[in-house]
Design a protein around this nucleic acid. Structure first.
Lengths: 108, 108
DNA sequence: GATATATTCAACTATATGGTTGTAAAAGAA
DNA sequence: TTCTTTTACAACCATATAGTTGAATATATC
């Protein structure tokens, strides 16, 4: 098998692998926020948080619009939907396994 | 916000962020396989593939059982279900957004 | 016992990641 | 204009990741 590349999925899962970034996404479900307010509750430097935003942005998980000096960041759930679709295949597989297990018990 | 840690989720998403590892999971839906046969289609050294298996294992995405000299690896979809549950929150959010958008169009 | 197979371990390399600090720039407020 | 706020850029550091190679170990097979 030559591994079918999916750089988009790589970046999405990579972005989700960090708890600070997941926290940011959680915050953004309350609506658009600028980087400062995203940074504030995370105990790290502003620049650290800013880097996390860039990672999320490159994964397509957030988008930003610039209003004067503040950068407003909003969640873009479409990328998450993409991750979800990838996982769906396996949850289907999981359900099949569960069904098979049940059938085995029923046979006894 | 003090980021609520979830090392399990960290490891799961981290493991999924690599295309070779995702390919391995895909292969394992056909059933248990030993490391050699997982390694074969990936163009990398055996040891490279073996490391990937260890990453998947530590994320709880696969388990192995040793039968003599071969290590049989099987998928463990439970961890994937965990990732799926995390994503579910956002797909719900996504659907709400879609509904709101539809409502806006309807009003016009 | 000798050989082949499947795997791990150890050491190493290159690059990525997550974080820092200091400096600069742009925009709003005084 | 000056001061403050919000952000980016550059350089740096420590650690992790993805990969390699060579040697060792355990189990089958001849």
């Amino acid at each position: 098998m030559v591994v079918k590349e999916s750089p988009a999925l790589d970046r999405i899962f990579q972005a989700l692998a960090n708890p600070s970034r997941r926290a940011m996404l959680r915050m953004l479900t309350d609506g658009e926020q600028n980087i400062s307010s995203l940074a504030e509750p995370l105990q790290m430097s502003f620049e650290g948080a800013s880097k996390h935003v860039r990672v999320l942005e490159q994964a397509g998980l957030v988008a930003r619009r610039v209003r004067g000096r503040v950068h407003l960041v909003r969640i873009r759930p479409m990328a998450l939907v993409q991750a979800n679709e990838w996982l769906e295949f396996y949850t289907r597989f999981w359900n099949q396994q569960m069904d098979a297990l049940e059938a085995m018990f029923d046979e006894e």
